[in-house]
Lab assay of single mutants.
Amino acid sequence: MAASAHGSVWGPLRLGIPGLCCRRPPLGLYARMRRLPGPEVSGRSVAAASGPGAWGTDHYCLELLRKRDYEGYLCSLLLPAESRSSVFALRAFNVELAQVKDSVSEKTIGLMRMQFWKKTVEDIYCDNPPHQPVAIELWKAVKRHNLTKRWLMKIVDEREKNLDDKAYRNIKELENYAENTQSSLLYLTLEILGIKDLHADHAASHIGKAQGIVTCLRATPYHGSRRKVFLPMDICMLHGVSQEDFLRRNQDKNVRDVIYDIASQAHLHLKHARSFHKTVPVKAFPAFLQTVSLEDFLKKIQRVDFDIFHPSLQQKNTLLPLYLYIQSWRKTY
């Protein structure tokens, strides 16, 4: 089996927390979720979201995140109150960019949308954001926290390059993509939290790379249903696996070995980020709550012996909000 052949990389499970039942964490995340308004986002309300009498641009960002990046939404709820709305805006910006690729039928249209967001970032730093909910909220975040323009532009530029429907040539190319998107998002989150620390940035770099790799793995069944495969070609070739094997949902050992190798790289990034947690300011830990969902996925895929098409991998963990709150309460990542 794939797991038994390579099992030495995987460390002990961390979500089991001995003695936790003896201490009762304060009510927090679930209460916040219940208090949030929840009407559906419609095209009509989106168009009017920044106008008078609408929910408001902040509510639009929150709803977009809740629907399109639920794990990011849950993590954002546990940030300090003064930072929450800015991170909602930042993550909503990322969602807007991420959904361009799947929402257009022609690359030219995707490039036009990316050009809109490039100009939007430029206009935000000229205090002239367009009348668009996410743009307005992002402008507020930039003004409030003096966010670095370079990180925002890196996210747009990398998403634009990724409009080509090509597999990553190697794991390094996937890591570079993750660094310029997910890690950049974390650098900006640290700025919102008021953290300027080399060790925190180092952790953000590795956690962002782990996030990018896990996202690529999780999306494999969806991409396969659209006749697309984006997994690193070098690892596929190493194990003699073709793109057609993934399109046919082949579950042979060599296919699972490909998934094992890729998942192991995410695991190593996560492990390395945690190896120097004592040197990272505690104030930075809330920015890294996504490690909970990353670890949850890596454990699940290990349990199914790296069968990327196993139905259990597509099921939401209903206990994730609780695990996130516990992680926040324990002040760790």
Score class of each variant (00 low, 15 high):
residue 84 R to N: 04
residue 144 R to D: 05
residue 260 Y to H: 07
residue 79 L to V: 14
residue 78 L to F: 10
residue 303 R to E: 10
residue 319 L to Y: 08
residue 49 A to P: 07
residue 133 P to I: 06
residue 106 E to Y: 09
residue 293 S to K: 03
residue 182 Q to K: 06
residue 198 L to E: 05
residue 292 V to P: 03
residue 46 V to C: 13
residue 242 S to V: 06
residue 305 D to S: 07
residue 263 A to C: 10
residue 285 F to C: 13
residue 103 S to H: 13
residue 227 R to I: 07
residue 311 P to T: 09
residue 132 Q to H: 12
residue 330 R to E: 04
residue 136 I to Y: 13
residue 94 N to D: 05
residue 252 D to H: 12
residue 95 V to S: 14
residue 269 H to V: 01
residue 294 L to A: 12
residue 204 A to W: 02
residue 177 Y to H: 07
residue 293 S to E: 10
residue 81 A to T: 15
residue 265 Q to K: 12
residue 177 Y to I: 03
residue 227 R to E: 08
residue 114 M to C: 10
residue 156 V to D: 05
residue 47 A to S: 15
residue 314 Q to P: 06
residue 204 A to D: 00
residue 195 I to D: 00
residue 131 H to R: 12
residue 56 G to P: 15
residue 283 K to T: 14
residue 123 D to F: 05
residue 210 A to K: 01
residue 128 N to H: 14
residue 203 A to T: 12
residue 219 A to R: 04
residue 175 E to F: 02
residue 284 A to C: 10
residue 292 V to G: 08
residue 107 K to Y: 11
residue 306 F to S: 00
residue 324 L to E: 00
residue 112 M to D: 08
residue 45 S to R: 06
residue 134 V to C: 14
residue 165 D to W: 10
residue 148 T to K: 11
residue 206 H to P: 00
residue 242 S to L: 03
residue 176 N to G: 14
residue 101 K to T: 08
residue 329 W to F: 12
residue 92 A to V: 05
residue 206 H to T: 01
residue 320 L to N: 03
residue 53 G to A: 09
residue 114 M to W: 05
residue 262 I to S: 03
residue 325 Y to C: 13
residue 215 T to A: 09
residue 172 K to Y: 12
residue 297 F to Y: 13
residue 124 I to W: 01
residue 242 S to P: 09
residue 168 Y to A: 07
residue 298 L to V: 04
residue 67 K to H: 13
residue 165 D to G: 10
residue 295 E to P: 00
residue 61 C to N: 07
residue 129 P to C: 11
residue 172 K to S: 13
residue 319 L to F: 09
residue 127 D to Q: 07
residue 203 A to C: 11
residue 318 T to L: 13
residue 332 T to C: 13
residue 191 E to W: 01
residue 109 I to G: 13
residue 194 G to T: 02
residue 91 R to V: 02
residue 77 L to V: 05
residue 304 V to N: 06
residue 181 T to L: 08
residue 100 V to G: 06
residue 206 H to G: 04
residue 237 M to F: 11
residue 282 V to I: 09
residue 49 A to C: 15
residue 138 L to M: 12
residue 145 H to Q: 05
residue 317 N to I: 07
residue 316 K to D: 07
residue 188 L to T: 05
residue 310 H to S: 09
residue 306 F to G: 04
residue 279 T to C: 10
residue 168 Y to I: 14
residue 97 L to M: 08
residue 309 F to P: 00
residue 84 R to W: 07
residue 89 A to E: 02
residue 252 D to Q: 13
residue 63 E to A: 14
residue 78 L to H: 05
residue 288 F to S: 01
residue 70 Y to E: 05
residue 85 S to N: 11
residue 254 N to E: 02
residue 188 L to D: 00
residue 284 A to S: 09
residue 218 R to S: 06
residue 208 G to K: 00
residue 316 K to C: 10
residue 280 V to A: 05
residue 291 T to H: 02
residue 103 S to N: 14
residue 154 K to P: 02
residue 179 E to Q: 07
residue 186 L to Q: 00
residue 317 N to A: 11
residue 257 D to E: 07
residue 317 N to S: 12
residue 140 K to M: 05
residue 254 N to Q: 02
residue 203 A to R: 02
residue 327 Q to A: 11
residue 56 G to W: 14
residue 248 R to Y: 04
residue 57 T to P: 13
residue 270 L to I: 09
residue 182 Q to T: 13
residue 125 Y to H: 05
residue 58 D to K: 14
residue 64 L to N: 11
residue 48 A to F: 15
residue 168 Y to Q: 02
residue 61 C to V: 13
residue 304 V to C: 11
residue 226 R to A: 11
residue 281 P to L: 02
residue 162 N to Q: 09
residue 315 Q to Y: 11
residue 179 E to R: 00
residue 102 D to K: 05
residue 251 Q to T: 14
residue 118 K to D: 01
residue 156 V to Q: 03
residue 169 R to V: 11
residue 244 E to F: 04
residue 303 R to D: 10
residue 99 Q to E: 13
residue 319 L to S: 10
residue 324 L to T: 08
residue 306 F to N: 04
residue 296 D to P: 01
residue 245 D to P: 01
residue 197 D to F: 00
residue 241 V to E: 02
residue 121 V to I: 15
residue 51 G to V: 08
residue 321 P to D: 01
residue 182 Q to A: 13
residue 262 I to T: 09
residue 291 T to V: 07
residue 211 Q to E: 14
residue 187 Y to D: 02
residue 217 L to K: 01
residue 209 K to Y: 01
residue 304 V to G: 03
residue 226 R to G: 11
residue 201 D to H: 05
residue 47 A to H: 15
residue 107 K to D: 15
residue 228 K to G: 11
residue 198 L to G: 04
residue 140 K to D: 01
residue 215 T to N: 12
residue 265 Q to F: 11
residue 304 V to A: 13
residue 112 M to S: 14
residue 330 R to N: 10
residue 66 R to E: 06
residue 325 Y to L: 14
residue 125 Y to T: 03
residue 89 A to N: 01
residue 168 Y to L: 08
residue 279 T to P: 04
residue 273 A to H: 01
residue 93 F to M: 06
residue 101 K to W: 12
residue 107 K to F: 09
residue 213 I to F: 06
residue 220 T to R: 03
residue 169 R to S: 09
residue 105 S to P: 12
residue 205 S to E: 04
residue 48 A to E: 07
residue 255 V to S: 10
residue 148 T to P: 10
residue 266 A to V: 06
residue 245 D to R: 08
residue 93 F to G: 01
residue 324 L to D: 01
residue 198 L to M: 09
residue 322 L to V: 11
residue 262 I to Y: 02
residue 265 Q to L: 14
residue 264 S to C: 13
residue 300 K to H: 11
residue 227 R to V: 10
residue 285 F to G: 07
residue 223 H to M: 14
residue 252 D to R: 13
residue 201 D to N: 05
residue 206 H to I: 02
residue 86 S to D: 09
residue 113 R to F: 04
residue 91 R to L: 08
residue 242 S to I: 03
residue 119 K to C: 06
residue 61 C to F: 07
residue 195 I to Y: 02
residue 209 K to R: 09
residue 91 R to Y: 07
residue 331 K to R: 11
residue 221 P to S: 11
residue 216 C to S: 10
residue 213 I to C: 05
residue 171 I to S: 05
residue 86 S to P: 08
residue 167 A to D: 08
residue 166 K to P: 12
residue 196 K to C: 07
residue 321 P to T: 05
residue 147 L to I: 09
residue 174 L to F: 05
residue 318 T to K: 06
residue 248 R to H: 05
residue 280 V to N: 00
residue 131 H to Y: 14
residue 221 P to W: 11
residue 139 W to M: 08
residue 179 E to P: 01
residue 293 S to M: 13
residue 201 D to I: 04
residue 185 L to F: 07
residue 281 P to F: 00
residue 66 R to M: 10
residue 236 C to F: 09
residue 306 F to C: 05
residue 149 K to P: 04
residue 236 C to D: 02
residue 236 C to Q: 09
residue 121 V to G: 01
residue 300 K to W: 05
residue 250 N to H: 15
residue 164 D to G: 12
residue 318 T to D: 15
residue 327 Q to E: 06
residue 82 E to F: 14
residue 187 Y to S: 01
residue 300 K to I: 05
residue 139 W to L: 05
residue 169 R to T: 12
residue 299 K to L: 14
residue 319 L to Q: 10
residue 163 L to C: 11
residue 138 L to E: 02
residue 125 Y to L: 04
residue 95 V to C: 15
residue 220 T to F: 06
residue 252 D to Y: 12
residue 130 P to W: 03
residue 310 H to N: 07
residue 131 H to V: 13
residue 233 M to D: 04
residue 253 K to E: 12
residue 69 D to F: 00
residue 83 S to A: 15
residue 45 S to G: 09
residue 75 C to A: 12
residue 231 L to V: 12
residue 63 E to N: 13
residue 290 Q to E: 10
residue 263 A to H: 04
residue 203 A to Y: 02
residue 140 K to N: 08
residue 55 W to Y: 13
residue 188 L to F: 05
residue 103 S to R: 09
residue 136 I to C: 11
residue 76 S to V: 07
residue 235 I to C: 10
residue 296 D to I: 12
residue 276 F to I: 07
residue 287 A to L: 05
residue 277 H to E: 09
residue 226 R to L: 12
residue 57 T to R: 13
residue 124 I to S: 03
residue 53 G to D: 08
residue 313 L to M: 12
residue 320 L to K: 02
residue 311 P to I: 07
residue 47 A to P: 04
residue 131 H to I: 15
residue 181 T to H: 03
residue 153 M to I: 12
residue 272 H to C: 12
residue 288 F to C: 01
residue 319 L to W: 12
residue 195 I to C: 13
residue 216 C to P: 02
residue 181 T to Y: 04
residue 251 Q to R: 12
residue 185 L to P: 00
residue 99 Q to M: 15
residue 222 Y to E: 07
residue 198 L to I: 14
residue 182 Q to G: 10
residue 240 G to Y: 04
residue 277 H to D: 12
residue 62 L to A: 11
residue 232 P to L: 01
residue 320 L to I: 07
residue 313 L to V: 14
residue 331 K to P: 09
residue 83 S to V: 14
residue 148 T to C: 12
residue 124 I to H: 01
residue 119 K to T: 10
residue 226 R to H: 14
residue 107 K to E: 10
residue 165 D to Q: 15
residue 304 V to P: 00
residue 184 S to P: 09
residue 45 S to P: 09
residue 153 M to F: 12
residue 207 I to A: 01
residue 147 L to A: 01
residue 87 V to G: 10
residue 332 T to Q: 12
residue 291 T to K: 05
residue 61 C to I: 14
residue 121 V to D: 00
residue 162 N to V: 09
residue 256 R to W: 01
residue 332 T to V: 12
residue 248 R to K: 09
residue 325 Y to I: 15
residue 75 C to E: 10
residue 66 R to W: 07
residue 297 F to P: 00
residue 233 M to V: 07
residue 212 G to M: 01
residue 90 L to D: 02
residue 139 W to K: 03
residue 151 W to L: 07
residue 285 F to N: 12
residue 324 L to S: 05
residue 96 E to Q: 11
residue 148 T to V: 04
residue 148 T to W: 02
residue 98 A to H: 06
residue 268 L to C: 08
residue 278 K to Y: 08
residue 210 A to C: 12
residue 145 H to L: 03
residue 201 D to T: 04
residue 125 Y to N: 04
residue 179 E to M: 03
residue 134 V to P: 03
